[in-house]
Design a protein around this nucleic acid. Structure first.
Ligand code: FES
Ligand code: FES
Lengths: 152, 152
DNA sequence: GTAAACCGTACCGCAGCAGTCCTGTATTGG
DNA sequence: CCAATACAGGACTGCTGCGGTACGGTTTAC
């Protein structure tokens, strides 16, 4: 488990395609066609990503979407937060008091923060640009910085 | 998001209480009473934890459960796996081919492994004993090893 | 033999997600 | 100004999966 939404899964695929040409303005129908994801679904996640600050939109004829920043400056954490809300493993992490019934005599409350923080950092440490590198397949881990500016 | 099951949340509370007296044999009704969690639910998760190798059970009259190992040797990862199955963020991580519809032309496939591995390590690095220390509240992070063998 | 406790499984109600659709708004171009 | 295009926002629905419960079976102590 610990699986994230399928929407987020699709979003990363779409964003990866956009990261190849970061400044190009692309429309939702076009992205749907390129990524093989149904059009209404793509449109939905694009809207949410825009609201989350990951994408920038342009309305009207010849409108479309662009990455809000460079692919290196967009983290996985941002994308997940934009689509699934803030990351918190349990109901009793952070300021959500009252949700947990046993919080009165719970000795764990607060210790989850460490685990939560570790995952937080792990997600923040991986950028969208890292996900585009095709050389890191199945354990052949290379340094992300070792990739020079690829031609595109 | 990225929230884990409430069952797992309860399990950690129960396990933390057991970790105070690691060798004591305690019954499901007793744990239910101590943790303020409904009895059938506690019984269910105790069974799953036993099957996952986290707990050891003793049947018959005066039976009960004990930790299978020392609290320091039980990781959060084990507990989560026992209750929620193997950890994999997306459907296309690891050997689950065919689940993802766009895997044919997906450039991301395989790059999720890095993110997944990071989270994997983060969860493996926190032990049940770490969750019992009451001093690590809200950012006051102390070294886990700094706690000598507490009296019990 | 009886009681206490675990074991396995099957069952049900419900929240949350995936996916779709519709109406509104902004922008471009004729 | 009008029409076409594409995003914005929200409402709606079918369904999977989880939380929670119940029941019959098995093991062990006394
Ligand atoms: S307050 Fe909810 S598990 Fe501790
Ligand atoms: S194969 Fe499923 S997202 Fe890449």
């Amino acid at each position: 488990m610990l699986r994230l939404n399928r929407i987020t899964d699709y979003a990363v695929v779409v964003l990866t395609q956009m990261a190849r040409e970061p400044d190009k303005l692309v429309t939702a129908p076009q992205l749907s066609q390129d990524s093989n994801v149904p059009q209404p679904t793509v449109a939905k996640l694009l809207k949410e990503l825009t609201r989350g600050g990951v994408l920038a939109s342009h309305r009207g004829v010849n409108g479309g979407y662009t990455l809000a920043r460079e692919p290196e400056a967009i983290s996985m954490l941002e994308i997940i937060i934009a689509l699934e809300g803030p990351v918190s493993l349990t109901a009793c992490v952070d300021g959500a008091e009252g949700d947990c019934e046993v919080e009165r005599l719970c000795p764990v409350r607060g210790n989850w923060d460490r685990v939560n923080g570790a995952i937080h950092d792990a997600l923040k440490g991986v950028s969208l640009a890292d996900m585009t590198s095709p050389a890191t397949m199945f354990g052949v881990s290379i340094e992300p910085r070792a990739r020079p500016a690829s031609a595109h």
